[in-house]
């Protein structure tokens, strides 16, 4: 009975993502059509003349009423039609699809890194208030939210590439000397390992490390902060007192009673962290010339390739909704109190 209830809740969560997706589509439509200025001019690009703008206007159906335009916009999206990128001449969807794995590899690896550091740091800081770990945590947290990723990235480059020479040159995912491995997962490191090519995997990993650390430093702060704060709050709770008064061992009180409760707000915070990470991803990709969708968007911005930028925003938003969905599902499975409200 309990299992099927959980399943129902998970399905409900999936359904709840629908309005979010609709909102995203509506906003991205409004951003293109309803703002002052002529979208046809944007889509035609800076080199367009009167005639090509008029052509584009008719081609895009911009002479029709807004609601109609919205429906045909949804129709286009459902067919994966995001327009042509004028800077590369390729369909935007193709461009995004080919670059998305690079962004995902970077973002997910960075998140993994920061989780591995932030969780223990937050836990240690919460259980040993005013110790050196606590102070370290405070410094890292404050510094982490104050450092702009693009600045951290450049600083790390200067130290590890220019001064020390440990890092490879910031030229994308793989040095020219290596051939990219056959695509399985989309991650160069994993694919190379799967292909039995440790040399290429090492090279890809070397390229990945510095940008991932840059991004990880940025996302580390909110996770560590929340872990520490949540655990401190839980440990002050009355049920912790009960557990202590019942003579439970310290470890059991800390992990089974404390941490399992404290992890819930941390999971919730991850949503915000993903939001930060996906945004900062754009900056990191630019600094390290990482060939993901972020640097694609930045290049497109420079030449006013609007269809590309719009496709990028949509792609990021959908990605974010999916990540949030994942968080919601995990939360639903972890917390027994989640009920069928609303």
């Amino acid at each position: 009975m309990r299992v099927s209830n959980k399943l129902k809740l998970v399905l409900l969560r999936l359904l709840q993502a629908v309005p979010a997706l609709f909102g995203i589509v509506l906003v991205s439509f409004l951003l293109t059509r309803a703002l002052p200025g002529d979208p046809a001019v944007y889509f035609a690009g800076p080199m367009a003349d009167e005639q090509s703008i008029a052509e584009i206007r008719q081609q895009m159906g911009l002479d029709r009423p807004l609601p109609l335009q919205f429906f045909s916009y949804i129709g286009d999206l459902l067919q994966g039609e995001l327009g042509q990128s004028i800077s590369t001449g390729q369909p935007v969807l193709t461009e995004l699809a080919s670059r998305l794995p690079a962004s995902l590899e970077l973002t997910l690896f960075a998140l993994l890194l920061s989780l591995l550091v932030a969780l223990p740091l937050g836990i240690l800081a919460a259980t040993r208030p005013n110790s050196w770990v606590d102070h370290l945590c405070r410094v890292v947290v404050t510094a982490g939210v104050s450092l702009p990723t693009f600045f951290t990235g450049l600083l790390l480059l200067y130290i590890f590439y220019f001064l020390l020479g440990w890092a490879p040159s910031p030229m994308g995912r793989l040095d020219f000397a290596y051939l990219p491995p056959e695509t399985v997962t989309g991650s160069f490191v994993i694919d190379a390992l799967l292909a039995g090519d440790p040399e290429t995997a090492r090279a890809a990993f070397a390229q990945l490390l510095l940008p991932a650390i840059t991004l990880g430093l940025f996302t580390l702060a909110p996770i560590a902060r929340m872990t520490r704060a949540a655990l401190i709050q839980v440990l002050e709770g009355e049920f912790i007192r009960t557990a202590r008064a019942a003579g439970l061992a310290r470890r059991k009180v800390l992990y089974r009673y404390g941490l399992r409760n404290a992890i819930l707000p941390v999971i919730t915070t991850l949503g915000m962290v993903f939001s930060f990470a996906l945004g900062a991803n754009v900056l990191v990709e630019k600094v390290f010339a990482w060939p993901g969708i972020g640097s694609f968007a930045v290049e497109a911005l420079v030449v006013s390739d609007y269809a590309a930028v719009q496709g990028f925003v949509l792609c990021m938003a959908v990605l974010f909704v999916l990540l949030n969905l994942l968080i919601d599902v995990i939360y639903t499975l972890v917390d027994p109190r989640v009920r069928m409200e609303s």
């Binding site: 049920f239 008064a245 399992r260 027994p336």
Partner: peptide, 14 residues
Amino acid sequence: MIFQNPRAALNPIR
């Protein structure tokens, strides 16, 4: 020992 506010005295997710 038992405390006042029994609901808060129990681990909510166990």
